[in-house]
Write a protein that binds this DNA or RNA. Structure first.
Lengths: 193, 193
DNA sequence: AATAAAACGTACCGATCGGTATGAAAAGGA
DNA sequence: TCCTTTTCATACCGATCGGTACGTTTTATT
């Protein structure tokens, strides 16, 4: 029995993720979605449920990929300071391109949906907590290696770096001066000593 | 000649501001607006133009009030450290209320509209620059009074505090633990020394 | 009191919203 | 090959979207 899917669910979800990431939940219509996903509405509904459920699936996909990327980036350098500098500069990069400027999907969702939907409040909080754990572990590695001062409060510094990274990501959306961004990154990374 | 307005433009704009602040641009409908503003659609259009123009007027009103509030708060204490602590704690406050949790209208707009609308990119950037100037002047006051170290880089620290305050405001939307918030505020304010 | 100008309430506009009913097409099991 | 089951495409649903035409009511001026 059965007729099998003619589209790849992962590819379709990926397309939905990029669209929600770029435009947000409310500003993205089902027409936008079906066009970019390359499927029709009934296929979308049978595979992913309604718009909110599709959005949630897209966000979960994003947070998993994002967490993996941050983890890989932090582990890509022996120097903890270098690793964090790499991470912050990947956010502070100019992006004066023609490409799409999207920031962080999870942060966008924190602003648009978390205050009005407990499910997204939890989902976004858990991602920030996970990033904080990654940061703390990396800082602890730096303490063990002797790169960072032995009296470093890894947890507190990790939390502060997460807050700063969120702030920097949001601020970038207003395209501030490079000097502004560079100086604040320098000060923030100065917390690692 | 002429028949005069039966509603107060400032009151109506104030109601629109609170609504956009709470729900964002896309999620706020004209029906929501006319209901809360207490006027009909033709009155809204003749007084404020279309939805985007009304939103822009509401945001300008917000940034003016917000800037005045921050300025007053920073000037309310002789101690610069105390003043910034007051400001950051007003953002980090629990708000475990039944009231509306809204965060900062300007930050919400940075996330929702600035990346897709140059007018709001400029408007939100200018507000952040103004806040940065307020912070810098306050820090310089602390340096002059001897409360802060004389080698303090007022501009860089001001920029970093703005970034941190944005990050904290956004993070609050996911209702993180008090301990997380308190520790990161403590570390950030540690930049004032 | 007559008039002209502006704001009011109502009722409506086409377009689009998120979501679905329906029937044809496709494919594994018998 | 026939049947059953799922997916596909089309066409459609009521509701709501942002925005406006229009006729009435109000008011300052003459």
């Amino acid at each position: 029995m059965v007729r099998l899917r003619e589209f790849d669910e992962n590819e379709a979800l990926d397309a939905a993720m990029r669209l929600f990431w770029e435009k947000g939940y409310e500003a993205t219509s089902l027409t936008d979605l079906t066009t970019r996903m390359g499927i029709q509405k009934p296929s979308l509904y049978s595979a992913f449920g309604d718009k909110k459920r599709l959005f949630e699936a897209a966000l979960r996909r994003y947070t998993q990929h994002h967490a993996a990327r941050v983890r890989a980036l932090l582990q890509s350098r022996d120097s903890v300071k270098q690793a964090f500098r790499l991470l912050f500069e990947s956010v502070a990069a100019p992006r004066d391109d023609g490409g799409t400027e999207r920031g962080c999907f999870c942060i966008n969702t924190m602003v648009e949906l978390a205050p009005h939907d407990p499910a997204f409040e939890v989902l976004t909080r858990e991602h920030q907590m996970y990033l904080t754990a990654l940061f703390r572990e990396t800082i602890e590695r730096g303490v063990r290696s002797g790169e960072l001062r032995s009296d470093t409060d890894a947890q507190s510094v990790a939390e502060t770096l997460v807050v700063s990274l969120i702030g920097l990501t949001v601020l970038m959306k207003s395209r501030p001066d490079r000097t502004f961004v560079d100086r604040s990154v320098r000060v923030v990374l100065g917390l690692l000593a």
